[in-house]
Computed example of a mutant assay.
Amino acid sequence: MNNIFVFDIETIPDIESGRKLYDLPDLDDADVAKAMFHLRQQATGSEFLPLHLHRICAISVVLRHKDKLKVWSLGEPDAGEAELVQRFFDGVEKFTPTLVSWNGGGFDLPVLHYRSLLHGVQAPRYWDTGEDDRDFKWNNYLSRYHARHTDLMDVLAGYQMRASAKLDEVATMLGFPGKMGMSGAKVWDAFHAGEVEGIRNYCETDVLNTWLVYLRFQLIRGHLTHKAYEQELELLRETLVQEDKPHFTEFLQHWQP
């Protein structure tokens, strides 16, 4: 396996844009967020903000490249959003990887599109649909039915939204750790409390779950033999042991043999 780039983002309200759009110049960040959630609730029945009003506070990845496996969060904990988005698309430019996500087509990538638009982040390789590289006409990052971005949730559901499932439930069903202590709904409170490192750790466990589900997907489609699949699992275990980080240790403890 080579050049596989599993990714997940965590987001908070885009306070600056909310302040502009809803004319709230005199409110502090916490109150602007409350107003944004309240207005969204009134309009739709849900506090979940429209995707263009999500600000990225963490991007975590698993990179499988050559004989190496690496798990990390892009940038330093205090890095600005523009740097995180730039680093993500720089990785695409450098490796031209297969992107793997869970609901990335429905959430993560559209958010990244809007944030790159806001910050002017260039990503010609990502946006290519065959103009620069003819191969990208038949397999690019933007088409829902192409494999260069594999949205596992979408593919496993047969592209039927009524058949979609939560990552936590699928991972747990397969004997993987699933979510451990945090969820996307808690990210804003954690960020407001200054717990950026905890958000990044949570995001990293999400990409680990996604990677494990992807390996199982590769097994059932015949792209990995049973022996190769077990070797990939062992490589991941060894990598997490070597990293010796508390959230990786906890992940290993929750991973059913």
Rank of each mutant, 00 (worst) to 15 (best):
I220S: 11
L21P: 07
N201A: 15
D189C: 05
P124S: 11
L74F: 04
R200Q: 09
P124Y: 01
M182E: 13
E232W: 00
E234H: 15
H65P: 05
V100N: 01
D29Y: 07
E76L: 08
V155R: 12
D128M: 02
L69W: 02
L112C: 08
K34V: 08
V111P: 03
L21Y: 05
G106C: 11
V100W: 00
E169D: 13
G75R: 00
P110T: 11
E243N: 10
L236S: 11
T11F: 00
A82P: 05
V207C: 00
A43P: 05
K227M: 13
P177L: 06
A163K: 09
Q256P: 00
E83K: 14
R115C: 06
N139I: 07
H192C: 07
H113G: 13
I9A: 02
A171L: 07
P13K: 01
G91C: 09
I9D: 05
G184R: 07
D108H: 03
W255C: 06
G104L: 01
F217S: 13
H65R: 08
L236K: 08
A190N: 01
H254K: 12
R87D: 11
D133W: 09
P177M: 04
V187F: 09
D128T: 05
Y126F: 15
L167S: 11
K166N: 15
S101C: 02
A123V: 08
E83H: 06
G45W: 06
H223M: 12
Q42A: 15
N3Y: 08
L69T: 10
G184W: 04
L109I: 15
